[in-house]
């Protein structure tokens, strides 16, 4: 298996503070990798750097073998690296289906001019996209709300919509930023199943930043552990849960299940 995402020795400094120091890891095609660590370990910074929202102070990030540092977020999305947001992030005043159609913007190959004069070709392309989006809604159990405003959805519903928006961009690699934070255990478990399904059916690779240990341990093929901005361990879930460094980092904060 070739590496889809290669993170090579990235650092990120804020002022004099090293939020991230020489972190390297990779995500191979078809893999679910977890990125964990205690609070303030640099997970969010790492996530933002990898997704292109924040440039690294040094280091390289390669996606499909191509350096993506300095590329626009929108271009990175075109390449197939798509993120979700930690807080619930949707287009609140628009309908659910419109939300997903917007997510599919990058993967709707209409010429903009054709779209203005509404040519047959552009209508046909849009119809294909619309169908794909409807299927996504179906898949994420949002079909019944398709014409509702996104802000009217429940918390869990908005989370699923957030994922639907990301999936509409046809990602090769999906970056999930604490997708189950704030969900109840049942919803969280559902979410885990959903990710596994998508992983299996779409051959989707996933990089998951999460606090929820059970989810991470149950879902991931491999786990990368950060502490104080540095990588302290990497391995299979079973290895990670007994790694003394990890246990120490988490000591008193959370129980590694």
């Amino acid at each position: 298996m070739s590496a889809l995402l290669e993170v090579e020795r990235i650092s990120r400094r804020y002022g004099g503070l090293n939020a991230l120091k020489d972190v390297s890891f990779s995500v191979r095609e078809g893999e679910i990798v977890g990125l964990i660590g205690p609070n303030g370990a640099g997970k969010t910074t790492c996530f933002n750097v990898v997704s292109g929202a924040v440039p690294p102070s040094s280091g390289a990030i390669k996606f499909k073998g191509r350096n993506i540092v300095g590329r626009k977020t929108s271009q990175i999305v075109h390449d197939g690296l798509v993120r979700t947001f930690q807080a619930t992030t949707v287009f609140p005043a628009s309908s659910v289906i419109e939300n997903v159609l917007r997510g599919a913007f990058a993967t709707t190959p209409v010429s903009m001019f054709g779209s203005i004069i509404n040519t047959g070709a552009s209508r046909a392309t849009l119809a294909v996209t619309r169908k794909r989006c409807e299927q996504l809604l179906e898949r994420l159990a949002l079909s019944q709300f398709r014409d509702r405003k996104a802000s009217e959805l429940s918390y869990g519903g908005q989370r699923r919509l957030g994922v639907a928006i990301a999936l509409a961009a046809n990602p090769k690699l999906l970056l999930l930023d604490e997708p189950v934070a704030g969900l109840n255990p049942e919803e969280a478990a559902d979410f885990g199943r959903l990710i596994r399904e998508l992983h299996e059916s779409e051959k989707l690779s996933v990089l998951l930043v999460e606090h929820h240990m059970r989810l991470v341990m149950g879902l991931c093929n491999r786990i990368v552990v950060l502490d104080h901005g540095e990588k302290i361990a990497e391995g299979k879930p079973t290895e990670i849960s007994v790694n003394p460094k990890v246990v120490q980092a988490y000591l008193g904060t959370e129980v590694v299940a």
């Binding site: 992030t89 990058a106 209409v110 779209s115």
Partner: peptide, 24 residues
Amino acid sequence: RSQYGRAFGSIAENMRLAEASGID
């Protein structure tokens, strides 16, 4: 009504999500 309008609306409503959806 076109894809431009879709991009415009996305940006006005949620700029970060618009960017993350591949809208420049």
